[in-house]
Write a protein that binds this DNA or RNA. Structure first.
Length: 678
RNA sequence: GGCUAUGUAGCUCAGUUGGUUAGAGCACAGCAUUCAUAAUGCUGGGGUCGGUAGUUCGAGUCUACCCAUAGCCA
């Protein structure tokens, strides 16, 4: 078989926080792919690095009262430990804040300049008049224009998730001085992507990108490519642009260059030939595994950078979806924003590797970590089905046959072994095409068939009959051989388990061994069987969630301060409100309104049978049918307000938090329409 | 708001170019079994495929609109 030369990367984790289970989807996906390639005898190199530049890192370092360099060094140590324990087998892990990366970034920038792909022009930025510096979005704070949460960043609101520009903030102020920012012209450097449009189009079309991504990319081309702003002003943690004092490369310019820098760093200590992988005429393969959120940095900006600077382009870019936990986005308060370290404190990494593999496909769908399913699936598949095969056969072999295997099977078993061997082509292809879930299904099907066969031969009965001893020897040896095959197929996913199993049957497995169809030889001695993997226990999963919740509540004061109690009012202020119980006599959809329902409220006999018309913004949480007949509380003396759809004569009270829920307030049973609420 | 995806049994997912009674694993129920880490085998119940309206002899599978979820908008 021809050996391929392959360079693989995972996206660079950002150095301002810990690795969490969401990150691990990608590293595990990549690692499985790389391990398969290596097992197949290909020359495959897997590099990564910490992404160490940008404003958030500066801010974080400031908060902790340390230099950015100290922060990123500390983070890198932590990241590497997490990856190593999750068995992510990087050949090199580096940092974008490195000499290699500085050299490449500067060199690439100069090449782009030389090709006339860089220009400059003035844009209006916010300026701090006291500190005399331009303010990055994150250095401007103010009230969210959408949800009115106070003290939010200039680019997005942490309370409601809205995105906007700093100029949209209410009461904007500089995070540095507190002064109100002023608008001022500022010089920026731009990468003129439009000049590479044709070449980029060709690349994106010829490159068998995932169809979802191709569709998305065609969108960028439709409006023509805009120039890309690649400079940021001091204060910034990054590389200064050559010949431009006080201007820095935007983090997204030098981050992907970090792939090259990390590989260069690897070449220097391994003797690998850098140019053979990166020159424009390279015949090596280059793959980037990334999350769907950063697709266009990798399918547009990054290839453009490489083209412009005269390097090779990626062979392909593989996008994956996001991790959900129990069907929802990871959430600190639900205890599902689980850090890699927290997981490791309670559970074995291979459980998660198996579960992710069992659910990963080639598409960009989000992947759900359902914790009950996780426990059941791993226990059932890996322990119950797979490891059980060795466990139920090993005893007979070691106790009754001096730990020696037979190499002759019944014709039925021989056929089963041949079929399982033949499946290697298909399984390998599933892995190669990143259809891990299908690979796992194929593998577990073989495990099922093996258990069925063992059941059929009933060695535990036959062992009682001296005449059937050879049959027992054969079926158990068959089981061990099938187990060996299955472990081999799962080795990319479960490298540690595979290592233990290889120890057990005194053999090391490559894909060629699996494909050969050969069994272990007659008389081959197996070692004493020890449990290779134990079951996931519920209390461990619960403990992990608890620990995550504790981490969240430790930060709670910061979170609760985002919505403090309003300033005090007098009783007289309160008494001005005429709150009444009302019955919804009619509720209907409003044509053309996204969020409104039109309610007819019956205020009962006490008010002389008064009815009011109210438009309530509760369509997202209630259907008209479920509201009709219900009692609610309304502000009855609120001045009527004219809306696009008609006159609204009051407000219905409802509770809402930042977690997108909306809950209408109902009086307890017994209340009647018209009653005062006080 | 625009765009790109996703929405199939309690849970997690498969369903090729539209075609006989919609599949798997887990969970559940019953039976068998005890070699094995309460593991294994057999049998069974359970979905009309997010909603509505279309195209078609025929749609989970095509079209339009709507709803929900995720991501992106340099």
């Amino acid at each position: 078989m021809e050996s391929r030369r392959i360079l693989v990367t995972s996206a660079l984790p950002y150095a301002n926080g810990s690795i969490h289970l969401g990150h691990l989807v990608e590293y595990i996906q990549t690692d499985i792919w790389v391990r398969l390639q290596k097992m197949c005898g290909h020359h495959c190199i897997y590099v990564c690095a910490d992404d160490a530049h940008g404003t958030p890192i500066m801010l974080r370092a400031q908060e902790e009262g340390i230099e950015p360099e100290e922060l990123i060094a500390k983070t890198q140590t932590e990241h590497e430990a997490d990856f190593s324990e999750f068995l992510i087998g990087f050949d090199n892990f580096h940092s974008t804040h490195s000499e290699e990366n500085r050299n490449f970034a500067e060199d690439i920038f100069k090449k782009l300049q030389h090709k006339d792909l860089i220009n400059t022009r003035s844009v209006i930025d916010l300026f701090d008049p006291e500190q005399k510096v331009f303010l990055p979005d994150r250095f401007v704070r103010g009230t969210c224009p959408k949800c009115k949460a106070e003290d939010q960043y200039g680019d997005n609101c942490e309370a409601c998730g809205a995105t906007y520009s700093p100029a949209d903030l209410i009461n904007p102020h500089s995070a540095l001085s507190g002064a109100t920012p002023v608008e001022k012209e500022n010089l920026h450097y731009f990468f003129q992507l439009g000049k590479l449009e044709e070449e980029l189009k060709t690349w994106t079309q010829s490159n068998s990108l995932q169809p979802e991504i191709s569709n998305k990319i065609s969108e960028w081309f439709e409006d023509g490519l805009k120039d890309w702003d690649i400079s940021r002003d001091a204060p910034y943690f990054g590389f200064e642009i050559p010949g431009a004092t006080g201007k820095y490369f935007y983090v997204w310019l030098d981050a992907p260059i970090g792939y090259m820098a990390s590989f260069k760093n690897y070449c220097e200590r391994s003797g690998e030939d850098f140019d053979a992988y990166w020159n424009a005429d390279s015949t090596a393969e280059l793959y980037h595994f990334i999350g769907k959120d950063i697709a266009y940095f990798h399918t547009l900006f990054w290839p453009a950078t490489l083209m412009g600077a005269g390097y090779r382009k990626p062979t392909n870019v593989f996008c994956h979806g996001f991790l959900m936990v129990n069907g929802k986005k990871m959430s600190k308060s639900r205890g599902t924003f689980i850090k890699a370290r927290t997981y490791l404190n309670h559970l074995q990494p291979e459980y998660l590797r198996y579960y992710f593999a069992a659910k990963l496909g080639p598409g960009i769908n989000d992947l759900d970590l359902n914790l009950d399913d996780f426990q059941q699936r791993v226990n059932s598949d890996v322990v119950g089905k797979l490891v059980n095969i060795a466990s139920r056969c090993a005893g007979f072999i070691s106790k009754k046959f001096d730990a020696k295997l037979s190499a002759s099977f019944s014709s039925e078993c021989e056929q089963a072994f041949a079929e399982a061997t033949a499946a290697n082509t298909e399984i390998k292809d599933h892995y190669e095409q990143r259809r891990y879930a299908e690979a796992i299904r194929s593998i577990m099907k073989i495990a099922d068939q093996t258990n069925q066969l063992i059941d059929q031969y009933k060695p535990w009965e036959k062992i009682k009959d001296e005449n059937c001893k050879e049959e027992v020897h054969q079926i158990c040896s068959f089981g061990i051989n099938m187990f060996r095959l299955l472990i081999g197929y799962l080795k990319p996913v479960l490298p540690e388990l595979a290592g233990k199993a290889e120890n057990f049957f005194n053999d090391e497995l490559t894909w060629a061994d699996l494909a050969s169809g050969e069994t272990l030889p007659e008389g081959h001695i197996i070692n004493k069987f020890k449990p290779l993997m134990t079951r996931i226990e519920s209390d461990k999963v619960e403990a992990m969630i608890e620990e995550t919740k504790e981490q969240a509540s430790a930060q709670a004061p910061v979170i609760s301060a985002s919505d403090p109690i309003d300033s005090e009012i007098s009783f007289d202020d309160f008494a001005k409100l005429d709150l009444r119980v009302a019955r919804i006599s009619k509720a209907e959809l409003v044509a053309g309104a996204d969020k409104l329902l039109q309610l007819t409220l019956d205020l009962g006999e006490a008010t002389g049978g008064l009815e009011k018309n109210v438009f309530a913004g509760i369509k997202s949480a209630y259907s008209p049918e479920e509201l009709e007949g219900k009692l609610v509380v309304m502000v009855a003396n609120l001045a009527a307000r004219k809306m696009r759809f008609g006159l609204s004569e009051g407000m219905v009270l409802a509770a809402s938090g930042d977690d997108s829920g909306l809950f209408v307030i109902h009086p307890d049973s017994g209340a009647e329409a018209g009653m005062r609420v006080k």
